[in-house]
Every structure is written in structure tokens, then in C-alpha cells.
Nucleic acid binder design. Structure first.
Lengths: 226, 226
DNA sequence: TTCCGTTGATAGTATTACTATCATTTGCCA
DNA sequence: TGGCAAATGATAGTAATACTATCAACGGAA
């Protein structure tokens, strides 16, 4: 399988971690660490020990740990965006495209050999538990000006396009898509930690049940036959 | 207007802040401070200076600032739950009840004179920006065991009941309600900070547009006439 | 050969999130 | 009226965090 690189916004890092060995090591080690410690328990100090480097070196790539999180989450959205593009461009029917996108968003993530340094399964768990934290801060507006959320916006826009093609009269395509994207993660989190908040916890396969739930409310909203 | 007190889970605090003057002061001052500084920028040190007390005294009420946040958010959900109960119990029709609940959830919050120490407008902004942080932590499961999220669950359950009454066959009442509750806040946040993610940002009154969006996807999902 | 960029090593700092101790005040009960 | 306990204040201290700064070592390109 071809090894690929996703191109991300330069402002996410001080120096592109994909351009050096040390940079790759930061990404590679930070994913399992944030997954296990949680973002609050994760520090550059711990990361530097784990990867046998120093705090100072890590700071040369990322201004702070928040930026590193934004980088990782952005990578995830770019990855999803790419896969949706890849798996829908050959489809003729917009409803089929939308359906495929929803499947990709909700399905359980497994290792993608095109990106050998990234553990997509762990990264998906990070997205579920930590992704909202990248914008729920007092610096959202500045971060947004720097384009840090471009990946998420692009993904949202692309799926919203499918929605508009299916029903050009639906008045809330972007709101509906962000709701779907956020819900996709939220419901998985609830199913695991606060099970009384969702029926997904009763399912043998929460991911495919999640897909059914989300497809159902989207299709009903835009009056599509499902 | 009668002055009321909402009864919350004892585990939220070490000592009930509603039982003493100092406790009330903590609540009263922490709301505008978290609103302005954001939860990350807010500290007990700053709070103690602002309210002219000491860190040590605050720690006698709340184990840490996370618990204080959980307390405030829980108060908000209990408040909403109470108001929904209050404004729906006289209605005969379940769809009307659901509709009233959705209105209360989405409408812009204003000062409630029944609770003179609490600035509900500021608290609502805190809920929009910080509420997810109360469960997106590594200690969710322990916190949940202590019953810290009971208020949210109760609210969810009560609205889910309306959904079930309208359509007993709908398979995802709780998932749908949590989606609505989370979306209600998320879309308001996006409209203000990441406007390209939602159509609400184009509306002259984002709150009532939010209501329309959420009512629309709920009604369509449960096949209700709206 | 030099020299520039990358990394490592080390040190230092302000702040945070607490914990501990003891003194003072307050209300209440005998 | 005296005394006692509970609540609060005052102060100190600590480990960890999130950085910043400086300088040395190394490695490869010109």
C-alpha cells in the first residue's frame, strides 16, 4: 500500500512534524499517550521521557500541548475527508454519497496502512473524548483566524454539499452535518460512560446502531427515502 | 416572587453552598468569573481574591474547581428540568409538552428572580462553552458512580418521556434528546465563533432559528406533525 | 573546513492546585 | 455569663505544570 501524507495547515505547528524523524516521533508517541492519560494528564515532560527526547525539542515543533491536540484532531478530520472523497467520487447518486459518508463517519476505525505512524484506532478514541476541547477555549477566535479549524470546516462543507444535492430546499445543511459529526462521537462516548443517555448502549454493535440513528435523523430531516 | 432553592446531589460539594453565606458567595462570584475568564483561566486563588476570602475556605466547599463547575452545570440542568416540569404539567397533549420543552431549552435565558444569587444569562453562556468538560475527563466513570450527572440524566429522561408518548415506536428517544440538548448549545457556540459551520449565524435571531432547526429534526424523526 | 540547522542538556521561573496548621470569630447551649 | 464547637481567616509550604533561556554537541551541505 502506498504511504501517504496529509497536507495540513502550516499554522498548526511551528515546524512540520511530518518533515523530520523527531517530528514523526512526537506524533507517533503522543497518540497512545493522550489516549491513555487523557489530554489533561498528558504533558510534554512525560512525552519527552517516553520518546527519549527533551521538552525543549518538542516545543520547537508545537507551541504548547493544545496546539498538538489541534494538530492531531485536524489530521483525523483531514483523513476522514480524504477517505470520503476517495470512496464517493465514483458514485453517481448524491444520496449514495451521503450514505457512504455517514458510514465512514460512524464506523469503527481500524488501522490505515497508508499512514504507518498513526494509530487510527487510538486517534479515534481521542477524537471522541477530546475533540471538543480544541475549540471550547477563550482563544477560539484567534485560533480560528489562524485557520486551525480549516480541516473540520472542509469536511463539513463537503458533506453538506451531498445534503444540498439530495434536497436543495433543506434550510440547515451545515447545521445538520455538524450535528451529525458531533453526535457521532458523543453517542459513542455516552454508550460507554453514561449509558442511560442513549439506546446505543443496548446494542450489540454500537457503531452500526449509531449509523442507523444518525442516518435516520438525517434522512427524515431532508425527506430522503432510506 | 418566591425565592426558591434547587436541591442538588450532596456529592457535588463537600458542604452545601446553599446553606451558608460564604457558600452562596462562592456560587455568586464564580459564575461571572468563569464566564469571563473561561474555565481554564479561572482559579480558586482568583476567586478568593474577588470574593475577599481565602483559597482554603473555598476548598472547604468544593474539592476542586472541576467539582465547582459540575455543581454549576448541574444547577443549570436542574433549573431547566424544573421549569419544563412547571410549564408542561398543565398541558394535555404530549406533543405540546415536547414543543414547550424544546422552546425552553433553546430560548435565550434571562434572569430568573426566583434565584436572586444566580445570573442565569452568564450561567447559560458557561453551559454553552464549558458543559461538555464536566464529563470529558478520565474520571467520568467515578464521577458518574457518585451521581454527579443525575441532573442531566433526569432532564433527558423527562423529555424522552414526551418523545415516547408522541411516538412509542421510535427506537432512539434518549439518543434523540441528548442530541437535541447538546446541539442546542453547540449550534449557538458555532454561530458565534465558527459561523461557517451553521446556518444559525445568518439568522437575525439565532435562538429562535435554533429552535426551528431542532424542532424540525426531532419532529421529522418521530413523524410528528409540526 | 566551516558553518548552519537540529537536537540535547540543563537550569530557571511564575503559576497552579492543592495540603496543613494554627489563630480568630461566631453563635449557641448550659 | 462562660465556655465550646464549628466556621472562617491567615499563612506557609509543596509538587507539578507550562513554559523560557542558554549553551554545547553533532551532522551534513557548501
Amino acid at each position: 500500500m502506498t504511504v501517504l501524507q496529509l497536507r495540513l495547515n502550516d499554522n498548526l505547528s511551528l515546524k512540520d512534524p511530518q518533515s523530520t524523524e523527531l517530528g514523526e516521533k512526537i506524533i507517533k508517541h503522543s497518540i497512545p499517550m493522550i489516549d491513555q492519560l487523557g489530554f489533561e494528564g498528558f504533558t510534554f515532560k512525560k512525552l519527552s521521557i517516553e520518546m527519549e527526547s527533551t521538552e525543549a525539542s518538542i516545543y520547537r515543533y508545537f507551541e504548547n500541548k493544545h496546539r498538538l491536540l489541534v494538530y492531531l484532531i485536524s489530521w483525523y478530520w483531514a483523513w476522514l475527508d480524504y477517505r470520503i472523497e476517495y470512496e464517493t467520487h465514483h458514485l453517481k447518486n448524491s444520496l449514495q454519497k451521503l450514505d457512504r459518508a455517514l458510514k465512514l463517519i460512524t464506523e469503527k476505525k481500524i488501522q490505515d496502512n497508508s499512514f504507518p505512524d498513526i494509530d487510527e484506532e487510538a486517534l479515534a478514541r481521542i477524537v471522541v473524548a477530546e475533540s471538543d476541547k480544541i475549540y471550547l477555549t477563550k482563544q477560539v477566535d484567534e485560533d480560528n483566524k489562524e485557520g486551525l479549524f480549516r480541516g473540520y470546516k472542509s469536511l463539513c462543507k463537503n458533506i453538506a454539499r451531498f445534503v444540498k444535492e439530495v434536497n436543495p430546499d433543506y434550510p440547515f445543511p451545515h447545521a445538520l452535518v455538524t450535528t451529525a459529526l458531533e453526535t457521532a462521537n458523543q453517542q459513542i462516548f455516552f454508550a460507554e460512560h453514561l449509558p442511560s443517555l442513549t439506546e446505543l448502549s443496548e446494542a450489540s454493535d454500537p457503531h452500526s446502531r449509531n449509523y442507523e440513528f444518525i442516518r435516520s435523523f438525517i434522512y427524515h430531516s431532508i425527506n430522503a427515502e432510506g
